[in-house]
Simulated assay, not measured.
Amino acid sequence: MTQTATPIESHPPKIMGRSRRLPFNQRAVFDQIFHSGGGFVLDFSDRTMAEWFDENFGLSIFQERFQMEGSSKGKTLRGFVEAAEPRLVAQILRALWQYRRALNGYAETDPSEEARLEAWLEQFTHELENASSMNLDDALKDFSRDTTLPKLRASIAADLVAEKPDVALDRVHTYCVKRFRDLLASRNQPVDATTPLHAIFGTFGKALRDEGAVSEFALPTLRVQHKLFEGLNQARNKRSFAHDNELLPVSEAQFIIDCVLASLAFIERIEAARERETTGRDDEILF
Rank of each mutant, 00 (worst) to 15 (best):
M1S: 14
P7H: 05
I8K: 07
S10T: 15
S10P: 04
S10L: 15
S10H: 14
H11D: 11
H11M: 12
P12Y: 15
P13Y: 08
K14Y: 08
M16G: 04
M16R: 06
G17Y: 14
R21C: 09
N25Y: 09
A28K: 12
F30N: 01
D31E: 14
H35C: 10
S36Y: 03
G39K: 03
F40H: 07
F44Y: 04
S45E: 10
R47P: 03
T48F: 05
A50V: 03
E51S: 11
W52G: 01
W52R: 05
F53L: 04
S60F: 07
I61V: 10
F62S: 06
Q63Y: 07
E64K: 11
F66R: 02
M68T: 15
E69N: 14
E69A: 12
S71E: 13
S72D: 09
F80M: 06
E82S: 04
E85M: 05
L88S: 03
V89K: 01
A90V: 08
I92H: 01
I92P: 00
Q98R: 12
R101N: 14
R101K: 15
Y106S: 08
E108C: 10
P111C: 11
A115Q: 14
E122V: 08
L128G: 00
L128N: 01
A139I: 03
A139V: 05
K141Y: 05
F143Y: 14
S144L: 07
R145P: 07
D146L: 04
L149Y: 08
P150A: 04
K151A: 13
L152Y: 05
S155G: 10
S155C: 07
L160R: 01
V161D: 01
V161F: 03
P165V: 04
D166V: 04
C176K: 02
C176W: 01
K178R: 15
D182K: 07
A185T: 13
A193N: 11
T194M: 07
P196A: 04
H198L: 02
A199T: 14
G205L: 12
A207K: 06
S215V: 09
F217N: 09
L219C: 03
P220C: 10
L222R: 02
Q225V: 09
K227W: 10
G231Q: 08
G231W: 07
L232R: 02
A235F: 04
A235I: 03
R236A: 02
R236P: 00
N237Y: 05
A242H: 10
H243G: 05
E246N: 12
V250T: 15
S251C: 06
A253E: 02
Q254D: 12
D258N: 13
L264F: 04
I270K: 00
A273T: 08
D283Q: 10
F287G: 10
F287N: 14
F287S: 15
